[in-house]
Nucleic acid binder design. Structure first.
Lengths: 143, 143
DNA sequence: TGCATATAATTAGCTTAGCTAACCAAATTA
DNA sequence: TAATTTGGTTAGCTAAGCTAATTATATGCA
């Protein structure tokens, strides 16, 4: 197994997420929908192109995702008055409420594992999450 | 945005992964295939049921995934001699080589972000990854 | 022994998420 | 004004996930 930090972080993140996915099923949202909503909530209103970039997918994928999320009441689409080609999206209060509800489910699912952590380990994780959040927001340029 | 640690860790992990996904495309493997291979490599030979559980999917999904991975030369299936219902899987050297190759791609993609980290932040991340790896291996019981 | 039940995996058939290519409509530029 | 560029959508495909039903082998018990 490759041992560089980037790779270990990557696979640790993947496996952790796959573990928790079952919990999210109970919210009635797919992983992609949940991830998209969390991006929108943390970054605020965006155009569809910006949303696609932030979510890491191609435009057609965002078009369909937003159609679904709008139909389900999690986001609102608006046409830009200045440029009629452009559409913007923002989240609804329902989206926020849903994330809150999911938070308690995930916390419950992780509570056993989390309880076993020392205060020092919790601090480490806390700090690491800040770093990961920062990296996750950065743009990685294609080569 | 909900602010408990479990949720922040979860979304930070999701967004980080989605960022790096484009890199993995170049390996010619889907995220699910890559994740499955990394699980198999780190845990060693397993039955299909165990593999499904470890990978976090239902049996039919593993059946198809393994068919694909076997056809592509990343895993080998074997029938259990003691119980003819059971099949086991293990990874090939090709799987290992591919992970190595992916590691350098990811490292390159992250290098910009990683270079910006202080030694102390790298340490924090290193330690946090160990914790995440541990949590990721634990079984989360359904309720 | 022999039948009933349990277990491991597969097959069938569905939905969602991703992609590229092709397209439409609005904005910009020559 | 015509040509080009840009933002988004449509069409059509593949892969990954699911549940329900099926097949084949093991196990348990009368």
């Amino acid at each position: 197994m490759p041992r560089d930090l980037a790779t270990r972080l990557y696979f640790a993140a993947i496996h952790l997420i796959r573990k928790l996915r079952a919990e999210d099923d109970k919210l009635g949202l797919s992983p992609a929908q949940l991830s998209a909503i969390s991006t929108l909530v943390s970054r605020g209103e965006m155009t569809l192109s910006e949303f696609a970039e932030a979510h890491g997918v191609r435009p057609p994928t965002i078009t369909r995702l937003v159609q679904r999320l709008e139909a389900d009441g999690y986001v609102i689409r608006e046409e830009s008055p200045s440029d009629r080609r452009v559409a913007t999206v923002r989240h609804t209060s329902k989206a926020w409420t849903m994330l809150e509800r999911g938070a308690s489910k995930r916390a419950a699912a992780l509570s056993q594992a989390m309880r076993a952590l020392s205060a020092e380990e919790t601090d480490t994780l806390e700090h690491a999450v800040e770093i990961m959040e920062r990296i996750g927001r950065e743009r990685i340029e294609p080569r």
